[in-house]
Nucleic acid binder design. Structure first.
Length: 886
RNA sequence: GCCCGGAUGGCGGAAUCGGUAGACGCGCUGGACUUAAAAUCCAGUUGACAGUAAUGUCAGUGCGGGUUCAAGUCCCGCUCCGGGUACCA
């Protein structure tokens, strides 16, 4: 009766494949549908790591559970296969990325199939397939042909864009310029991050805080100006923000991160007169209430008005400063954050609330890309301005008496020697121009001042977002080509739908050009052509890896459709995704980009839901134990030995500390799922990954833990596969009660993605069954069903032993029979002053008074009552008794 | 700095609403089986103290306060760890 997992797992994987057990039918007549989606992987050369099966197993368990509950389940898998590593490999070895990709996908597919996941493999997709990416291009064309109507708060076809008469009057060129400026996708010069090492433009988010490139790790990243495709995602900022409020089944943390990323702020734009100029200087501030405390102004080095503002005697200083700032990357600017820099421009602005002259400075702590690129500085109530004022000895005027109990802090703030950004009551806040907010609090002050500014025509309420235009092109070969032609007259056109796909040409040289152009520039046959508009050159940029993953969940719905990205009726049936599981590293970018595309498609009537993912869940990272010396240097795991629970270096004998760290080759603590499958089986791997702890927790891999669940499966097999243990005698009340409790608990645990406790419940059932020595067949069958989402191979095997001729995958989930759960008595824990002292069995229907009396007269109660006064007795029916004694 | 999340036995972790802290698993200890070992099965396992023992007492969920009949759970103030973000006015 040995548990031969190798044979069992092979047998059932072959069965599922041959019988297409998990093929999904588009059975639109079944209103119960469930779309369970995993974040599809990038098939890297190193194969699957143990982090992948974690999320996949979780969604698989839910999928299997839903099938058994009568749901039509869509559970697909595919490959996010465009990307840098395959191209790097091609540059090094000459192997075409498509070959590498194919090979890696084969490895991933083999590994994933060996885990017994219930995917419908007929729906497998690959972002690098022409059949797939032609629809990525198709969506890009839709973005290009869409503008955002701010009044209706939605994207609309570009041919519905109203053109103002004065633009029309200026001719077709002006109309074209006007239109292009409204498109969601546009082509323009952009300052971009350029990695000299990879010869690639990187997105902002690919450049890490320390100035290194996320992909290659080098610090050879610099600024460069290049023609780029950009997407106007900020137009959807408000929709993306308010949409989050509707996503009640998303983790709050992810929503918070997206909110921070979008970075909405409300405030006011205020126009300042500039001494000696007619043009006004407009600033954005969230604190118009602090105008009385504005002691200077700052404009960004790139500000358009700087040339007019700077005066003769300051020109050389300012020019030098601007030049130096231009040389600096954003990174250098932030690296020097501690030391603020800036130069006086020589000119003054007039504060609109009190007509005071205040100096205008130029400093790079003000960014051109946000707000108006100019600020009014209120050092008393803004920490950055305070630092700057200290640096350059500018006046600090406190205009808000802090609401604090600390007299020392208060005095510092009033003296201008400390900064206060919280609430308080205004002082010194009345001026020659008629505004007086003295005594008000912050909220009232902001409101009153804004109203005053609006009334005087000096300003208006304004909203800003941190979210910037999305740089949407890469100078790379292995990505989706843009469906774009550049004509000799400099005009641009997207290709008509019937010319799709624009296929990626075969290439032999993959090296990017030094000047930043993509290797596609070498594909001369592909590059040039002529159509009815004349000679053209194709766009050589390709799309970033985000593109394919922005909409893949839609293609799974109808993956082989040659006519459209998907069939509308099918989309209407399957969307939204009911459960989306993946890593927290995609909390912002992938999910925000994908939501953005989805909203555009929704506005255009292409999809039926405003949001794509109903429930989102981030599985936690799986870490591993690692070892370090006293001084903190890491020791590879194969140089560590354990003695009596302590760890020692095999070479030096020094005692080491066990820590938890990311798996890495250098630490030699990488766990390969293939090894686990070979040694313990896929069911053990699945079970262990789910048993380790809560799905969303970061947790370390413990080898002996795998053995633990493996032992459990051995016990299950030894007991439940042995006909001697399976009888026809009815089981006793204890067994039946536990069984039905377990049906309830495991069901609700699966719904709540709490697989660790569900598995422990399966263990409890097994333990009791073994203790009883024998169970009736019906009980064994129920147990097998409960086990089947978690360890499907073993469950199928048992199911067959019990005489079924078919798969367990669509057997109905067992129902809870309340009759077995009913209790006639409850064992009260009796506490004295909150400490449990003894147990008191009472009938379930006993009244409070009866319980109270029984508790007080219990022989064990005497000991606690004697010599004390009983002050109070709390009886919570069928829960607890607490007796308070003095 | 700011925004999130976390801290429970030797270890991974349980504990819907505030109501018996430590489920389940690992490890360890003892026992059965065995010539022996492995495997398996059974029992014990938060710590301290007392007792031959069943058992009992006290302490106990990162630290310090508080609310409550009752706090791992709620409130206030910290410490440490993890994630995100960083001159966004």
């Amino acid at each position: 009766m040995e548990y031969n997992f190798t044979d069992i797992e092979k047998k059932w994987q072959a069965y599922w494949e041959e019988n297409k057990t998990f093929k999904t039918r588009d059975d639109i007549s079944n209103p119960k549908k469930f779309y369970a989606l995993d974040m599809f992987p990038y098939p890297s050369g190193s194969g699957l790591h143990v982090g992948h099966p974690e999320g996949y197993t979780a969604s698989d368990i839910v999928s299997r559970y839903k099938r058994m509950n009568g749901y039509n389940v869509l559970h697909p898998m595919g490959w996010d296969a465009f990307g840098l590593p395959a191209e790097q490999y091609a540059i090094q070895t000459g192997t075409h990325p498509s070959i590498t990709t194919l090979k890696n996908c084969d490895t991933f597919r083999r590994q994933i199939k060996s885990l017994g996941l219930s995917y419908d493999w007929d729906r497998e997709i690959n972002t690098t397939d022409t059949d797939y990416y032609q629809w990525t291009q198709w969506i890009f064309i839709r973005l290009y042909h869409t503008w955002f109507d701010k009044e209706q708060e939605k994207g609309r076809p570009i041919d519905e864009l109203p053109i103002p008469d004065e633009i029309k009057a200026r001719g077709s060129h002006a109309v074209r310029e006007y239109t292009d400026a409204k498109r969601l996708a546009y082509y323009d010069n952009a300052q971009v991050w350029w990695c000299k090492h990879c010869k690639i433009v990187c997105a902002n988010e690919e450049v890490l805080n320390d100035g290194s490139h996320e992909k290659c790790g080098t610090r050879e990243v610099e600024r460069k100006n290049l023609k780029q495709w950009m997407l106007r995602i900020p137009l959807y900022a408000e929709r993306l923000l308010t949409g989050l409020d509707t996503l009640s089944e998303w983790p709050e943390s992810v929503k918070d991160m997206q909110r921070n990323w979008i970075g909405k702020s409300t405030g006011a734009e205020v126009d300042f007169e500039v001494d000696g100029l007619t043009e006004k200087l407009r600033v954005y501030t969230t604190r118009p209430d602090t105008l009385f405390g504005a002691t200077y102004m700052v404009i960004a080095p790139e500000h358009a008005m700087l040339g007019d503002i700077v005066t003769g005697e300051q020109k050389s200083h300012v020019d030098a400063y601007v030049k130096a700032a231009a040389m600096k990357s954003d990174l250098d600017r932030t690296e020097l954050a501690k030391e603020k820099t800036g130069v006086f421009t020589g000119r003054y602005a007039i504060n609109p609330v009190n007509a005071k002259r205040i100096p205008i400075w130029v400093a790079d702590y003000v960014l051109m890309g946000y707000g108006t690129g100019a600020i009014m500085a209120v050092p008393a109530h803004d920490t950055r301005d305070f630092e700057f004022a200290r640096q350059f000895n500018l006046p600090v005027i406190c205009i808000l008496e802090p609401k604090t109990a600390d007299p020392e802090i208060k005095q510092h703030v009033l003296n201008g020697t400390a900064c206060w950004t919280e609430d308080g009551a205004y002082i010194n806040s009345d001026g020659s121009e008629g505004l007086d907010i003295n005594g008000l609090n912050k909220e009232q002050g902001i409101k009153t001042t804004t109203q005053w500014l609006v009334g005087k025509g000096l300003g208006k309420a304004a909203v800003n977002y941190k979210l910037r235009d999305w740089l949407f092109s890469r100078q790379r070969y292995w990505g989706e080509p843009f469906p774009v032609k550049h004509y000799e007259d400099g005009s641009i056109a997207v290709v008509p739908d019937h010319e799709l796909p624009v296929t990626l040409p075969e290439l032999e040289a993959f090296k990017p050009g030094d000047d930043g152009e993509s290797p596609l520039a070498n594909a001369s046959d592909w590059l040039y052509g002529t159509d009815d508009k004349g000679k053209f050159r194709r766009e050589t940029n390709t799309m970033p890896q985000w593109a394919g993953s922005c909409w893949y969940y839609l293609r799974y719905i109808d993956p082989r459709n040659p006519e459209a990205p998907f069939d509308k009726a099918k989309e209407n049936y399957w969307m939204p995704v009911d459960l989306y599981i993946g890593g927290a590293e995609h909390a912002v970018l992938h999910l925000l980009y994908s939501r953005f595309w989805h909203k555009v498609l929704y506005d255009l009537g292409i999809v039926s839901t405003d949001e794509p993912y109903k429930k989102l869940f981030n599985q936690g990272m799986i870490l591993a134990f690692a070892y370090e010396t006293e001084t903190g240097s890491k020791v590879p795991s194969d140089e560590v030995e354990e003695k009596d629970g302590k760890f020692f270096h095999t070479n030096t004998g020094a005692e080491l500390n066990q820590i938890v760290a990311k798996m890495s080759k250098s630490l030699k603590n990488v766990v390969n799922p293939d090894d686990v499958t070979t040694n313990y089986g896929a069911d053990s791997l699945r079970l262990y990954e789910m048993f380790m702890g809560p799905l969303d927790a970061t947790k370390p891999w413990v080898d002996t833990g795998v053995k633990g669940v493996y032992n459990f499966l051995c016990r299950v097999y030894r007991f439940f596969a042995d006909p001697q243990n399976i009888g026809s005698e009815p089981d006793d009340a204890e067994m039946m009660k536990l069984l039905h409790q377990s049906i309830r608990k495991i069901g609700s645990d699966i719904e709540g993605l709490k697989f660790n406790t569900a598995i422990s419940q399966l263990m409890i059932v097994t333990n009791l069954a073994m203790k009883k020595g024998k169970v009736q067949k019906e009980t064994a069958q129920v147990f097998t069903k409960l086990l089947s989402p978690f360890a499907p191979h073993l469950a199928e095997e048992l199911w067959q032993l019990y005489g079924a001729g078919t798969t367990i995958a669509y057997e109905p989930w067992p129902e809870v029979d309340e009759q077995y759960l009913q209790e006639d008595s409850f064992e009260y824990p009796v506490s004295f002053n909150g400490k449990m002292r003894f147990k008191l069995p009472m009938p379930i229907a006993a009244t409070k008074e009866e319980v109270e009396k029984a508790a007080l007269t219990h022989e064990k109660a005497l000991k606690w009552i004697e010599g004390h006064e009983v002050r109070k007795i709390i009886v919570v029916p069928n829960k607890i008794v607490n007796i308070v004694v003095a």
